[in-house]
Design a protein around this nucleic acid. Sequence first.
DNA 1: AATACAATGACATCCACTTTCATTGAAGAC
DNA 2: GTCTTCAATGAAAGTGGATGTCATTGTATT
Lengths: 149, 149
Amino acid sequence: MTQKKQKVKEQFHLFLTKKRLKATLQRNLILDAFVDLDRPTHMDELYLILRSKHSHIGHATVYRALRLFAAAGIAREFSLGDGLTRYELAGHGKRHDYLVCSDCGTVTEFDNSSIEERQLAVARSMGFTVEALKIELRGVCSRCLTQSG
Amino acid sequence: MTQKKQKVKEQFHLFLTKKRLKATLQRNLILDAFVDLDRPTHMDELYLILRSKHSHIGHATVYRALRLFAAAGIAREFSLGDGLTRYELAGHGKRHDYLVCSDCGTVTEFDNSSIEERQLAVARSMGFTVEALKIELRGVCSRCLTQSG
DNA sequence: AATACAATGACATCCACTTTCATTGAAGAC
DNA sequence: GTCTTCAATGAAAGTGGATGTCATTGTATT
Ligand SMILES: [Mn+2]
Ligand SMILES: [Mn+2]
Ligand SMILES: [Zn+2]
Ligand SMILES: [Zn+2]
């Protein structure tokens, strides 16, 4: 277990204790999956990961857990153009830039406090083909670019 | 009728003719309301405006009309954090910055091709209290700021 | 006019998400 | 360890924005 994971789990249990909420098996499993994935995600992705190992977990429980993580300050809730509610590990400031692959849909974080031109340069250096300038930078990620040609 | 409105209506009718689609009373009413409002909006807002004058319009028709405007290149579809699909008049480039008032929900356009610091300065000069830096700048608009204190 | 077929609108359905509620189970009291 | 309490779970129902269905209406062409 990484240092970061340990810290997050401690923070969560402190929150639960303070609020007189309960540390259930499901909440621990969901938090583990969320921290282990280590990139912005959403309910359905986590649900599939969890179901593959623990087939008894309900989808409502995953939704509720993610909201709880946000309430605990462990996760940050955000949203892109699609209908999905997304979550990422919290605690990295006010800037939230995402590279959204229009091919595979993968969301990559891209925090950079310098100016626009610099943001574009970094995006390109990550193999991202920028199509439009928005908080969500949409394009094709390096993996998809390699696979298709 | 403004120059801009005239042009938009011509563009729409050209599109309809090309595609062998029909210029209906409803489509004209919806386009008028959309252009007259002159700021980013969504189906429900337009529906209320339209129903107040023309009580026989169906909500599905408004949804379909807005999608059609986007297909015609007249409108641009986008989305903010809430569940609503928004539309704005198209034709002002790739940059799309919005000031979203966290109090009244009004969306204001804020297109600026210079760097971040400059964006923040412009936002402030418009009376907007910036809370976080994202494509959607959330804060309080000048109107709400005046009303509350 | 008459015809062809796109558009409308009431209604049903979809999908992400939330709520409900009977049952389960975590944690403090003893 | 057992008891007691009440939060948590999960299956199922509900919600809300958006879209599909289809009988009827309306537009544009002949
Ligand atoms: Mn972020
Ligand atoms: Mn714009
Ligand atoms: Zn990709
Ligand atoms: Zn406001």
